[in-house]
Design a protein around this nucleic acid. Structure first.
Length: 427
RNA sequence: GUGCCUGUAGCUCAACGGCAGAGCGCCUCACUGUGGAUGAGGAGGUUGAGGGUUCGAAACCGUCCAGGCACCCCA
């Protein structure tokens, strides 16, 4: 056991059961993305460090990216996020693309962070963006995509809420309180932390930033104001859009939502479980300049990202991950004795050409052992073909789920199998 | 990167300075041409690694590795 070379810290192995869950998640993501007319794309997993140097918070690149020199000495990063790659891809074809673009992607990312619950060093992320649209309707659409995804995996609106705010609104409010321009970025970051620090600590930090006690109390009453959005024409319009899109129940206004990344300029949102057990499930917002840093003409857009780790933890805790049997729907062809293997092979090959998933037994063991093997692998049906059956041109067809078996003329095998597989596989 | 907690059979956990155990799982048999049930046997451990203290360490002490929680940051 100790001799097994260990895996890299913060990575996960996907055994067939886990891989089946990942496939299931991807299929849900793909379906929702396609339902809104989004097109799939991807970029390389390796990028030059220069791509990230211009934007991306310094910490993400300097301390959280996996960076290494290639054999020529050039510094290469394993992509820690997709947005810079997206910006480059958009900028490269800015004059031939039809805007607004609706693009989505799902793939691996790497960040050199300390692993903990909901955070690994290698993870998968769904990215989805609507690029080249500055309207409230665009923001509403992305939030609707997120909400419809939650709906499609069975999450109820009282289990997860998409919390929404607008940086323009917060900026205006900070201005009203009299917080000078140069202080606002720091204050915004402090707002982002309000639920992570004890009240006294938070108050002290806020005062240390330069706020006067009067401003602090005004700020705190601001952050407790659930109706603040009504003062924002953008958010008022946004919630009206969400209503007509049929996802209003999944959303809520939350003045504490700011989002860390600097490039968000308008609507910002993140999905949280209402029980507060997990970190953010997804996060995104509106940006006004996607491609400026990579040499294109400024383009607005809106998008969000969802990592696989937190959403799967959440779905697991809610019992919403279906039981998926990797070899489900498969047919097992037993081998009665070595002399009969060729007969079993012929039937297995015939069934495969007919479209069935078929697996057999390479060795030679007692029937009960072969059946046990088929059962543990989750086979749906088993064929037994021995001397009696061959003599009469028949096969024994067992339904492992129903625990029944029937003797069929060999010619009716496909029909019998189809009938078994057509039955609802309820557990 | 900072602080705190944890690591015993494949899994979940006992033993807490004095012979390393249980349940589940796994293997064999009862089962002669039939899976999940039942019963009877059996295998499986240098107690995460490598040091120290001690007559004696799974236990106590420091180091490393891995996991968890909070910070940082964010998916």
């Amino acid at each position: 056991m100790e001799k097994i070379v260990r895996s890299v810290k913060g990575t996960r192995d996907f055994y067939p059961e886990e891989m089946a869950v990942r496939r299931w998640l991807i299929s849900k993501i793909q379906q929702v993305s396609a339902a809104f007319g989004y097109q799939e794309y991807d970029g390389p997993c390796l990028e030059t460090i220069d791509l990230y140097a211009a934007k991306s918070g310094e910490e993400l690149v300097k301390e959280q990216a996996f960076v290494f020199p290639d054999r020529s000495g050039e510094n290469i990063a394993l992509r820690p996020e997709l947005t810079p790659t997206l910006a480059r891809m958009i900028a490269s074809k800015q004059n031939e693309l039809t805007f607004p673009c609706r693009w989505w992607s799902f793939g691996p990312f790497w960040r050199y962070e300390r692993p903990q619950k909901g955070r690994t060093r290698e993870f998968f992320q769904w990215n989805i963006d609507l690029i080249g649209a500055d309207q409230i309707a665009a923001d509403a659409e992305l939030i609707a995509v997120a909400a419809e995804f939650l709906r499609s995996v069975g999450v109820h609106p009282d289990q997860v809420k998409i919390l929404i705010n607008d940086r323009r609104l917060m900026d205006a409010q900070l201005s009203t309180i009299g917080i000078p321009l140069d202080l606002r970025p720091a204050v915004l970051r402090q707002i982002d932390r309000i639920d992570k620090q004890p009240a006294e600590v938070w108050d002290k930090n806020a005062l240390d930033l330069g706020l006067v006690p009067e401003q602090l109390s005004q700020l705190k009453s601001l952050l407790g104001s659930a109706d603040l959005w009504q003062q924002s024409p953008e958010l008022s319009a946004l919630f009206a859009e969400l209503d007509s899109l049929g996802v209003r129940e999944y959303t809520a206004y939350e003045p504490k939502i700011i989002r860390g990344l600097d490039y968000y300029t308008g609507t910002v949102f993140e999905a949280r479980d209402t029980a507060g057990s997990f970190r953010a499930i997804l996060g995104g917002g509106h940006y006004s300049n996607l491609v400026g840093d990579v040499g294109g003409k400024p383009l607005p857009g809106v998008g969000f990202a969802m990592g696989d780790v937190v959403i799967l933890l959440l779905l697991e805790s809610l019992g919403l991950i279906p039981e998926i049997i990797p070899a489900g729907e498969a047919v097992f062809v037993s081998v009665f004795a070595e002399d009969y293997r060729s007969t079993s092979n012929r039937i297995a090959a015939r069934l495969r050409r007919a479209g069935f998933k078929v697996f057999s037994y390479p060795g030679m063991d007692k029937l009960n052992k072969q059946l046990k093997y088929a059962d543990k692998l989750g086979a749906r049906a088993v064929l037994v073909i021995g001397p009696d059956e061959i003599e009469r041109a028949e096969v024994v067809l067992k339904d492992l789920t129903a625990r029944t078996q029937q003797v069929l003329p060999e010619a009716e095998l496909e029909k019998g199998l189809a009938a078994i597989l057509a039955q609802r596989h309820t557990l």
